[in-house]
Design a protein around this nucleic acid. Sequence first.
DNA 1: GCGGCATTTTGTAGCGCTACAATTTTTACG
DNA 2: CGTAAAAATTGTAGCGCTACAAAATGCCGC
Lengths: 339, 339
Amino acid sequence: MNSPETQNSPLGRRPTLYDVATHAGVSPSLVSLFLKDPERISEKRRGAVQKAISELGYRPSRAATTLASTRTKSIGLVIDDYRNLWFVDLLRGMESVLSNLGYQVMLADSRPGKNRIKEATDGLLAMHVDALVLAAEPSEAMLSTTWVPTVVAGWRKGVPAGADLITNDDDGGGAMAASHLLELGHVRVGHLSGADGASAHRRAGFRRAVETAGVESIISESDGTSEEDGYTAACWLLEHHPDTTAIFAANDTMALGAFAALKARGLSVPHDVSVIGYDNSPLAKSRYLDLTSVDNRSDVVGIDAAHRLLARIEDPSLQPERKLIEPTLVLRGTTSALR
Amino acid sequence: MNSPETQNSPLGRRPTLYDVATHAGVSPSLVSLFLKDPERISEKRRGAVQKAISELGYRPSRAATTLASTRTKSIGLVIDDYRNLWFVDLLRGMESVLSNLGYQVMLADSRPGKNRIKEATDGLLAMHVDALVLAAEPSEAMLSTTWVPTVVAGWRKGVPAGADLITNDDDGGGAMAASHLLELGHVRVGHLSGADGASAHRRAGFRRAVETAGVESIISESDGTSEEDGYTAACWLLEHHPDTTAIFAANDTMALGAFAALKARGLSVPHDVSVIGYDNSPLAKSRYLDLTSVDNRSDVVGIDAAHRLLARIEDPSLQPERKLIEPTLVLRGTTSALR
DNA sequence: GCGGCATTTTGTAGCGCTACAATTTTTACG
DNA sequence: CGTAAAAATTGTAGCGCTACAAAATGCCGC
């Protein structure tokens, strides 16, 4: 309707709350009240203020609001890398409880350097977030330096003092994957493992379940958890244990590497070898890949983390808590009974 | 060293710049100066301020800084969905030019509702970002309401007045994919297309190239661009044109759907049918999938967008510009010469 | 040892908003 | 109608920082 050039607003600058108040013929305080809860002012004024806001194209300044209020109604989420999609479920879980309460979730990733986690956290704290979720391995440098309620999600090492811990039961999940393969009758089962914390737990669970069943646990460990790592580990496994009939990969991406190694050897899945992954990532859900996988329920972690933070925002004296979330098994087409 | 309980700081609250100044025995202005450029103050004072900062555990308040300065040195990036990983390259491209200049990139996704794009944008503007990159289709509601330099990246419809446009040459990319298949000798080529803007351009390019070569263009169109859509479209294609020897999917995910359809029919890739995708996503790069794909060079879009914004921050009177980025073809194992 | 100039440091005045107490208006009811 | 209580509205005083001009200090040669 209006020309973009004139920008509706008669001011040559970003309109402020005072501009709105003047335009609407009320006091700034009333406009502020309107912003916080429109229901709290009379219908007559509400209309006038609303009109002034849209006529001027006013948008509140978050900076000013933040500075003037004690609470910002925002929660910071630090993730290690945008490309690790597991944070999407975490985020969705958090938002499912926080959005309705008017909270906003701010994301910061800490990809590049090692101490970027501290940087990302500092950035979030600089924005006065009311609380923090660390979905990245906390560095030593920040073990004791948070001013706000903090929960560590999905990592178990280096939890800052006073922080809650809500994480996936990777140990249980590893055992779950192993049991599934054993129940299908497999007795030559291999595990492709990575080097990080979660991998170690998955590995331990796997080993325990397999050895409890009286079966030898064959583990091929690599430095990372990428598809290439999975490929390399699977090649080693297939070379040294050619009679392997089932493979448990530490994550879905590594399972993809196993697929590549099997394909190269002319072995088919699940006819010759069953494969189970971990994370129930979009990859596993793919119709083509159709990968059986352990779902670590990051959405539940997110929901729990959110509840926990809300509680600690209300009562900062609450004692930190530690909690494990049970994974679930998602059956798909890459595992089948031993033929 | 210090107990986490005492938090180093003698104050029972978040330390401010004034606390630092007092502690260091200098004026607040000097501390502010230090924050902006440590080199600008004498060595003696610099040491004192530095010491005070770390002793108190001081972190500047972004809100206060933002409010007091005219520039915030931050750029907002609106994306449609965190799960569409193409934004990662965009982001990396932007950061490669912005980080060195001290700019920070803030992300907001607009997943859920339709007008969340406006919400996400408003949120960013509320944080006083100096400029905005819209990597999501702008809604009508916001065609004329930005106060800051804006560039639309990767979308061509609904560009707000006064915004720059830097986008991928999807039309050229479609033609590129088609030419590749034609050069390999294929004459029965099908295209799996989606319904969004980018798909339409890729389709147009494909059609033009194929028809220029005097070959019939067979297009299977679906509502979306998911793997399921790709699967459905591929099933239609294979049923109605069983002699198809090459398939161009509108994106890598749809190519995965095509794989599923081919596998179900016992056809192998690339032996029976060649497949080319689009986006050069992590999927395409996978060793197992090894998918030939068109790379739309989002990293370059990011770099260009950043340069453009910096220029417009310097000189807001600059006329908006439109620019297409040339895609490149990435050859992998899913396309081969017609046997 | 003293102008004159460059460098370093400081004081003052907001940025745009909210908290909270104080004030005005409306409503309820004897 | 009058008055107390409730509801609606307003004024005042910052939140933590930066911009910018003014003041203080250091440095030079003569």
